[in-house]
Amino acid sequence: MPDGSFAQQPQQRQFNPYTENGGTILAIAGADFTVIAGDTRQSEGYSIQTRYAPKVFRLTDRAVLAVNGFAADGNMFVKKVKQRLEWYRHAHAKDMPLRAIARLIQTMLYAQRFFPYYVYNILGGIEEDGSGAVYSFDPVGSYEREACRAAGAAQALVQPFLDNQIYFKNQMAAAGQSHPLHLPLSDVLAIVIDSFTSATERHIEVGDGLEMYVVLAKGRSSQGLDGLRGAQEISTTNDGDRVFVIRRELKKD
C-alpha cells in the first residue's frame, strides 16, 4: 500500500506459467490457393521484445501453420507438429494431407486439455482435391474449416473487416448477379495487407513486419507472384503444390 503497509490483504502467490506475446495472424482461402499471414512483432506488456519473431511456419509444401498467443507454447507446439509430420513422412513416404494435419493438431491440443497450450492456431494450405482451405483452432482443439479467419491481439479489428470484404456480408450483389465464392490472389493479398496496416494503426501489439505465405495448388500458374516485390519461393519440389513467402514492412511505432 502507498503508506508502506502490506500485511493485511489476502496473500496470493502463485507462479503463472503463461504470458501473452501479442501479434495477430490471419488466413484466407482462395479457390486453388491459400494465404496465411502474421505480423512479426513479439511483445510482453508494453515492451517490444523483438521486431522479427516469425509466427507463421511452413509445415509441408501444401500446409502452413500460424500460431499466436503465448510464444513459448507456440514455438514448442510447432516443433512437435513438425516432428509428428516427419515421423509420418518416414512411415508413409509422403507428406500428410492437410485435413489429416488439422485432425492431428486437434488431437495434440486436446491432449493438453488440463494444461493447455495457450495458443490460437490457424492452419492453411491445399486439400487433396486441390482446393484452398483454412482450419482454425481454439487452444484446446475445437476446430472447423473456413474460408477466412483472423486471430490474436487484433482479431476483433480484423475479423469483421474480413466478413465484409471476403464474405461480402451486408453487401448486395448487382442485379442478376451473385457475389464471387472465391477472390483472385491479387485481391486477397491486397485485403491482407490492408487488414494488417489497419491493425497496426490501431493496435499497439501489431506492427514491425508482415509475412504472408501463399500456398498454390499443383499446376496453378504462379501468375503475378514471381514478379511481386519481396516474393520468394520456398517449395521443396516444383511438381507439387508450391509455397511462397512475401515480406512487407509495417509501421514500427
Binding site: Y18, T19, S47, Q49, T50, A53, F70, A72
Partner: peptide, 25 residues
Amino acid sequence: AYVDLLGTTYSAATIATGYGAHIAI
C-alpha cells in the same frame, strides 16, 4: 538470443533483461 523462466525466447540485435529492457534498450 533471450530465454526466461517461462521458456519465452527471441533474438534481436539489441537485448536487455529486467530494468535494462526499459531503460537501456
